[in-house]
């Protein structure tokens, strides 16, 4: 029994180290006063300096770009989740013509290759005059997030007992009140997880962002961070500092919500 425990822990520690090392390297590079790649075996900088962060924060428009990222990701989450909630509720509760087709269609949109969408989306956003505007990104991100959100939320709604809604109806609630006062409060874990995913997607996306945004003051952070990695030379220090700034807030939220993650993601799948 003890031997087995030892083996299990050894395996887990090894996996954890493999998992952590690339991440720790980024941390180490961020605090080294150099732009070259860290080649030491242990991710501990010889000299700790905040130069990279100072450089990063003093870049023109940096805080504007941070703001852009927050705005885009926040709005995307709000809009995407709002629309997904109503749609997922309908898909879960009502039997209407086109329901199955609609659900399938949502899955099919996940198969559209990004390369096929890039040019038309560029044209669409340009025609709306939304290039270099956060609104353009919000529009695209929030709609592309919808299919996943709808499926995830639908799975959760399916597990809520119907009697609660019927009971509220008997209590005099209209359909909207039922949805707002009963269904949504009960679905908080699933909504939190869904929101986290739309936020992550919007916060991390850079291909569309790099395509739509050509002016530095309109950049989102991923575009900035990515621009440190050039074809011929890479400012690894700046890149690492930027990567930290981008990743840390997300990781914080991620870990705060990780308990919900397990339940909120699979409720639908398990119950079928």
């Amino acid at each position: 029994m003890r031997l087995r425990d030892l083996v299990v822990h050894a395996g887990l520690v090894a996996t954890s180290l493999l998992t952590l090392f690339p991440a720790l390297w980024v941390v180490s590079m961020a605090f080294r006063p150099s732009q070259s790649f860290d080649t030491s075996l242990l991710p501990i900088p010889e000299v700790i300096s905040l130069d990279n962060f100072r450089d990063l924060f003093s870049r023109p428009h940096f805080f504007r770009q941070l703001g852009n990222s927050l705005l885009v990701a926040g709005l995307t989450t709000a809009i995407g989740v709002m629309f997904s909630c109503t749609a997922a509720y309908a898909f879960s509760r009502f039997r209407f013509p086109g329901r199955r087709a609609g659900l399938l269609a949502l899955l099919v949109t996940q198969m559209f290759p990004g390369t096929l969408m890039l040019i038309p989306l560029y044209a669409l956003i340009e025609s709306l005059g939304l290039l270099n505007r956060s609104a353009g990104l919000v529009l695209v991100y929030s709609t592309t997030a919808i299919p996943f959100c709808v499926w995830n939320l639908k799975g959760y709604f399916d597990t809520l007992p119907r009697e609660l809604e019927e009971s509220a109806m008997m209590d005099g609630a209209g359909p909207f009140v039922v949805f707002w006062r009963i269904v949504l409060p009960l679905s908080r874990p699933a909504i939190a997880v869904t929101a986290l995913f739309s936020f992550l997607t919007a916060w991390n996306e850079f291909i569309l962002a790099a395509t739509f945004l050509s002016e530095e003051q309109a950049y989102t952070l991923p575009v900035t961070v990515q621009s440190f990695v050039g074809a011929f030379s890479t400012e690894w220090g700046h890149f690492a500092a930027g990567a930290l700034v981008v990743s840390l807030p997300v990781m914080a939220v991620f870990f705060a919500l990780q308990r919900h993650l397990v339940g909120g993601l699979t409720a639908g799948g398990v119950k079928g």
Partner: peptide, 14 residues
């Protein structure tokens, strides 16, 4: 569990 979901939280391009 916390350590092992780190990769998920890091943006894929990074």
């Amino acid at each position: 569990r916390v350590i092992l979901i780190v990769p998920w939280a890091v943006p894929s391009y990074i």
